[in-house]
Amino acid sequence: MTPPLLEVRDLHVDIPMPYGRLHAVRGVSLSVDIAESVGLVGESGSGKSLTLRALLGLLPRPARIVSGTILIDGEDVTGLSAKQLKRRLTDTMSMIFQDSLTALNPVMRVGDQIAEVPLRKLGKSRSEAKAIAVGLMREVGIADPERRYQLYPHELSGGMRQRICIAIALSTKPRLILADEPTTALDVTIQAQVLGVLRQLKQEEQVGLLLVSHDLAVVSQTCSRLYVMYAGKVVESGDLVDLVTAPRHPYTFSLLRSVPDPDKRVARLLTIDGRPPDLTDPVTGCSFAPRCPFAEDACREAEPELAPAGSARLSACRRVDTAQRWTAMVEQEVSQEAVSRQ
């Protein structure tokens, strides 16, 4: 069996604050196989973006990695010297950001920004690099790439700029693209186009994708496997269809039912009361227990670890065996409420 392209084991990230340390990522492990698309879902403050940024050494100050192991093709790269590590990481992965306007150099033609890596790092001639850049622009669905090569970022729409960012990410010939909320700033029609580009890449280019988003629907458009994060930890992971149709963690479960559906109106959206714990204080018990409708006393005593919950599934819930019961309970509650309101 081939080792996964990228594996992270027990990653911890801290943010020193004036009045304590915020333990933002608390032991995240995940893996991405070759040409696999994996989604990392969570709300703000769940540590999903920090996890992604830690992988490329792009943590915002003053956040820092406390511990953790990164393996590429099964080889532990954490022991390498800083320079070698950086090289190994950037050769394997590249990143797309949420805000395409600030991610691009405002005073450089977009085409030249795409051609930069082929020119400087891959040792291509100027005309070859330009040809590569035009090819990449075409690949990400930019019509008339020769003309648009000459434009500056502010002359392009948000969707076009994000395509340019994707083309830049592809210019290093990465085996894995890390994307941090790549469509959140875009209008819904443009978002659909950009997601289409990402899907197409996956099918045609054999590039892996690790997509971070708060939007389960967006992730489900492009990914085949999911990790759900809450309060700095992965609380559930598994195959996409499997996970969204039969969640094995109450947080995933609540998240799925609190999002409105564009195709169907429900009597009442399920809500999750409370808010995530303050990670400057140590967490006792399950971090979701204070908001969990199914929590028992035991949930508040010890923090549960990820444990197998079905084929290729992991869940950090003690009560995972009763998952079907939750569904029934909530469904009944919601329908009762709907009846009483009519």
Binding site: G141, A143, V188, T189, Q191, A192, Q193, L195, G196, V197, R199, Q200, D215, L216, A217, V218, S220, Q221, L240, V241, V244, T245, L256, V259, D261, P262, D263
Partner: peptide, 25 residues
């Protein structure tokens, strides 16, 4: 129609990308 069609849905069957610039050419 374009707006409603563009809303990402949870778990779709993988199909061709929706209306993009190519179609309008």
């Amino acid at each position: 129609r374009l707006l409603i069609g563009s809303v990402p849905r949870l778990v779709t069957v993988e199909g061709p990308a929706r209306a993009s610039e190519g179609a309008s050419e």
